[in-house]
Computed example of a mutant assay.
Amino acid sequence: MTLPLEAIELDAFRKRHEHDTFWCGLLLGGCGVQLTTNLYTDRVCHFAHHPGADASSHRCGRRARGVASADHLYVKAAAVAWPRAAGHPGDTVEFDFARPDGAEIGSVLDIRFKERGLRVHLDQAVAPVWDEDGREPVLGVSVPVDRDTLIDRWYIHRIRLDSIGISRQVRIGTEAFMCR
């Protein structure tokens, strides 16, 4: 299940699921402890471990904990904002936190705009597939690309997330082949 990223959407989500409970996924390396929803207006809303009597001593086995652990959520929020910013507020954007080859959630994010899409590789867990049907790879700064691919394609798309205060700013650009 994906939690809405914005506070106004989280309120509706909480009402819709007021009788449901959420748990840290064991299949994702989590601990199985109950989760709660954290509402923020200055960063993305997210699930967090439910504060209980043993909250201070609780250790979850989930590996992703650093500043970049929510980057997939920031990319999703930016992708939702793109059509609005371009004057197309009715355009829908579909997402899938893909897990090709068993990759962890957050490594790869599929974004579909109408008939075309992007496959965002935030880390090196999954090698990009070039010229895949309707899905253009966008590589995180840590994802290498071999020189032959860059020569054949002339450019690739890159994504970088920078910390701005307590939030993350999504930046997309290109890396071009340069003749020397």
Rank of each mutant, 00 (worst) to 15 (best):
R16I: 07
E136N: 05
R119H: 06
H58E: 08
G117T: 10
A125T: 09
Y74H: 12
V145M: 05
Q124S: 11
E18I: 10
I105G: 03
R84F: 15
M1K: 08
S142P: 04
L5M: 05
C60Y: 01
R153C: 05
S142V: 11
T21W: 13
G52Q: 07
A53R: 15
I164D: 13
E136S: 00
Q34K: 11
R16N: 11
T37P: 09
A7K: 15
G66Y: 02
G140K: 00
V80F: 11
A127L: 14
R168T: 07
P137E: 06
D152M: 08
L10C: 15
L150A: 01
N38M: 15
Q34S: 10
T36G: 15
R180H: 11
A7D: 14
V170I: 08
R62P: 04
R147P: 05
A55H: 10
L5P: 02
L161T: 00
L3P: 05
V75Y: 02
S142M: 06
Q124M: 08
M178Y: 14
L118I: 05
P83R: 12
C24H: 02
R43M: 07
A127E: 13
Q34I: 07
G25F: 11
V143W: 02
G32M: 06
T92I: 09
C179N: 13
S142C: 09
I166D: 13
L139I: 03
L3S: 10
V67L: 07
V141Y: 04
E115T: 10
S163T: 12
V93R: 03
A70Q: 08
V44E: 00
I172Q: 01
L5D: 03
A81P: 08
D91Q: 15
V129W: 03
R116H: 12
G173C: 00
K15A: 13
T149C: 04
A86G: 12
I111C: 01
V67D: 04
H49Q: 06
H50L: 15
I164R: 10
G165M: 01
A81M: 11
S69G: 05
G134C: 09
A64N: 03
H121E: 00
R158E: 01
C60S: 01
L109Q: 04
H88Y: 14
R135V: 04
L122C: 04
T149K: 01
